[in-house]
Structure formats: C-alpha cells, structure tokens
Design a protein around this nucleic acid. Sequence first.
DNA 1: GCCAACGTTGGC
DNA 2: GCCAACGTTGGC
Length: 138
Amino acid sequence: MSRPSYWLIKSEPFEYSWNDLVAQKEGTWDGVRNHLAKKNLKAMEVGDLCFFYHSREGLEIVGIAEVSVADILDPTDETGKWAAVKVKPKQELARPVTLKQIKSEPKLADCELVRLSRLSVASIKPDEWKIICEMAEG
DNA sequence: GCCAACGTTGGC
DNA sequence: GCCAACGTTGGC
C-alpha cells in the first residue's frame, strides 16, 4: 500500500469553508451520514492528503488539507456509529480547480467526485491527484 | 427553483 | 426481503 492516500472532502462554504479551517488551524471533519463516505473516512490515515472542495457555492477545489488525527468518533453523533477525522490546512491552491474543469478533463471522467456527485468524502487516485494538482498550478 | 441521483423508510 | 414512496443533497 502506498502512502499517503488521496481524498476529496466537501463542505458547503457557508457551513465550514477553507478560510474557517485556516483560521482554526485544525478542524474536525464530522457530520458524515453516508456509508460509503464513512468507509472512506475510516480508511484515512494520518498524513493522507485531501482536496478541500466547496459544494453548492463555489464548486471548486480551493486547498489541500492533511489528515492530522484519523478515525475518531463523530462528536455530533449521539449513536456513536459514525466516524470523523481531524484535518489541518496544508496548502492553498494557486488557482482553484472548478468542477467544470474537472468535468471537461476526460482523464477525470470516472473519478468518484464526478460519478457520485452526492458523496461527501471521495477517494482520489494518485494519477487523478496529479492531474488536478497540475491544473491548480495553471 | 428545478430536477436527478441516491438513501431511507415502511407496507406487504 | 422486496420495492414504491418519500426526503435530502447538490449541480445546473
């Protein structure tokens, strides 16, 4: 298994934006109530990298976060069934990569972000990660 | 604001 | 255990 693994985490910017994460230095990624998203969350390890994507408003990847604490219990979940992680901001993208750009790149056509648009925690393959990073550099 | 995709619920 | 109805999410 190669490390780190790559992920994409979504947030609605009026709920919790990249700037909020930067301001707080570290954020808990909680509130996930989807089983595939949970599976992805639990597969995250410290040091894994996540694209931070703004959904519903913005519709773009704005930064890269690094997993700082893996596989904790979701503090917003009273049943104790759901997982969460903590992330810290690693790098802001020089140029945000929009969903439109991602969709117009044939090599990214079957990434989880595009195929499963409602998934809030998507895995990203290393080559997909590389392509998006290149797009962010312009 | 609309609609498609997906998850969940509840009747059978 | 199946499936229709319904609610929610998220892109457009």
